[in-house]
Design a protein around this nucleic acid. Structure first.
Lengths: 212, 212
DNA sequence: GAGAGTTTCTATAGAACAATAGATGGAATT
DNA sequence: AATTCCATCTATTGTTCTATAGAAACTCTC
């Protein structure tokens, strides 16, 4: 019987350093070519290692996809929950929520984009797991909007579900164009929030501006 | 030298009948599994024919993708242009534009979804061609919004480009969820239009409702 | 119903790809 | 300096997939 030193500090330390690089390379390639369009060779090329060496870090291409997708959603849900449960009226919290939803697009673009576009190609098991996160996120938006309607901050005839899906849709499209447009994320977030809260229509001439 | 009767009426007629079915099957499979995730065998299975028989109708899988993508955008641009150049104030035309943009999602869902998600996998040449259509569509939205700002219908401090991208983003996300939600397209279109035009905020207590 | 022309089939070549097995070199530990 | 263990490498297997070639079946027209 071979004694394997599972607790070896070296092994853990090295993997901690290298594994994130492997996953980042995978995220980059998956984002660029799609899961099925990307080959493990492409990932290896980014890292400058051999294709077979990747299998020291993951046991299948699909497993790599799941890790990338998880890194693409994790944080969104919890950050959103914290904002919704925090202080401020519904309008203010929605602004924060939109901002917090757009922010990860700067430094974690590849991961987010892979989550958005490629999660459908996960095996049923992990797709379900990932789906829970994203449905949870939908409910965070919807819940906040419902609350705003109940408290009279938002129009009573608003369909909260549609509004939530609309906001998520416009935010989730941002990764695909925000590089070409060179608008800072803060500007995008501010415009988006005003768009859905105040609308585009210019206020009637005599309208008094409400305290914000 | 072989004489080929290119003008044969039968050949043209039969192809006209069958080719659209082939492309529709391709659209369906591409929409479901993605371009690289779909095999020509999958397409053949839908049609109940052999995989190799497909190559009578297209000379490569990529060519099939291009045809599907083209069917996914064609019409959008022209329909949009007609509305923008038509009668009505900017608000009314934007409502119509959103409605016309969402409508094809009912009967041409597969084509639209393939255009949205898979066009990136087209070879450079045709991707460029398709890209022109979609940039044209962006400009249609942006132009109409700019017009609304100029005429004082929309807020002067609105960023028309951001607004256009926001609206396109929320509309383009609809194909991915409108089946699960069972809201009729007309409802979705109405909610979306009100959301971006009037906003979510409930009007100040004493506000007079503007003519619509 | 013969013949021309169209559509689908069988068979297969050839390439690309994911994944496995076992070897190798080198760094850390003793 | 010897040993252990880790990260990467070489070599390869088996599969899957696109695309081609040529035969067969079907359909329409005359």
């Amino acid at each position: 019987m071979t004694v394997v030193s599972l607790a070896s500090p070296r092994r853990a330390a090295n993997r901690r350093r290298r594994a994130p690089q492997i996953i980042e390379a995978a995220a980059h390639v998956f984002a660029e070519r799609g899961f099925h369009g990307a080959t493990t060779q492409d990932i290896a090329d980014v890292l400058g290692i051999r294709q077979a060496s990747l299998y020291y870090y993951f046991s299948s291409k699909e497993e790599a996809l799941e890790v990338v997708c998880l890194k693409g959603v994790e944080g969104f849900f919890e950050a959103g929950k914290a904002i919704v449960e925090g202080p401020g009226n519904a309008r203010e919290r929605l602004r924060l929520l939109i901002n917090s939803h757009l922010s990860p697009l700067i430094d974690r673009r590849d991961f987010v984009q892979v989550f958005l576009n490629e999660r459908q190609h996960l095996p049923a098991e992990s797709r379900k797991r990932i789906g829970r996160w994203s449905r949870g996120l939908e409910r965070i938006f919807e819940g906040l909007i419902k609350e705003g309607v109940t408290k009279g901050e938002f129009r009573a005839d608003l369909d909260p579900r549609m509004a939530a899906l609309a906001i998520l849709g416009m935010c989730n499209a941002a990764p695909s164009w925000y590089r070409k447009e060179n608008a800072p994320i803060s500007h995008i977030a501010r415009e988006f929030a005003r768009l859905v809260i105040d609308g585009m229509e210019s206020p009637p001439a005599g309208a008094r501006r409400r305290r914000r």
